[in-house]
């Protein structure tokens, strides 16, 4: 896994906008998507979101990946809805889908995980009085990213071992040893964190 997450580095206005504001914008857009019920304004929203991709200079390759994923979904939903609700209903449904998903994805592409982390930490600060420790958010991100790296290595070993025993198609031969080692890793990590004063 890429520790930067899905972020696509850049310097556009969208990249520079603070994460909190961008998130509010996304919420507003999502609300609009669910309130609007006619194709024309929804289509306009879709165009606006697409312009956002241009503004953020998202590379064509990333856009292509997204378009392909959306297309599969849209075709499926469109056919089903056409059959169930008629043509207009199906078009409205699909435009909603495209606007909401593409906008949410644009947020993720233009916002660093670390910026979201700081925004969340700031947002949680008022909850400190009820025992929430906002500075833990960054710790949790780091711990989890590192744990994913360790467990991927273990998963690879376990899968090879299962293959060596001729059990490459067995879910149990994969999941049981992986889980046992996962839990063991957790215990050792717990000790290490304690030893390191957490």
């Amino acid at each position: 896994m890429n520790p930067l997450g899905l972020y696509q580095p850049g310097t556009s206005v969208l990249h520079r906008l603070p994460a909190g504001w961008k998130f509010l914008g996304l919420l507003a857009l999502a609300t609009a998507v669910f309130v609007l019920r006619t194709p024309a304004p929804l289509g306009a929203l879709c165009v606006a979101v697409a312009l956002g991709y241009v503004l953020a200079r998202i590379p064509a390759r990333r856009c292509g990946q997204l378009a392909r994923a959306l297309l599969v979904l849209v075709v499926f939903v469109f056919l089903l809805q056409w059959w169930l609700l008629g043509l207009t209903g199906a078009v409205v449904m699909c435009l909603r889908l495209v606007a909401a998903l593409a906008a949410a994805n644009l947020f993720t592409l233009t916002t660093r995980v670390s910026d979201v982390v700081s925004a969340v930490e700031r947002g949680l600060r008022p909850l400190r009085r009820v025992g929430v420790r906002p500075e833990r958010v960054g710790l949790l991100v780091g711990l989890t990213v590192q744990a994913v790296a360790v467990l991927s290595g273990i998963a690879g070993e376990v899968r090879e071992a299962a293959k060596a025993r001729g059990a490459s198609r067995s879910v149990t031969a994969f999941a049981v040893p992986l889980l046992v080692r996962t839990l063991r890793h957790a215990d050792e990590l717990g000790e290490a964190l304690a030893a390191r004063g957490e």
Partner: peptide
Amino acid sequence: GFVFTNPDSQIVMP
């Protein structure tokens, strides 16, 4: 300070 056998479980950050 404590150093464990398996550094994979001791290294906690990416």
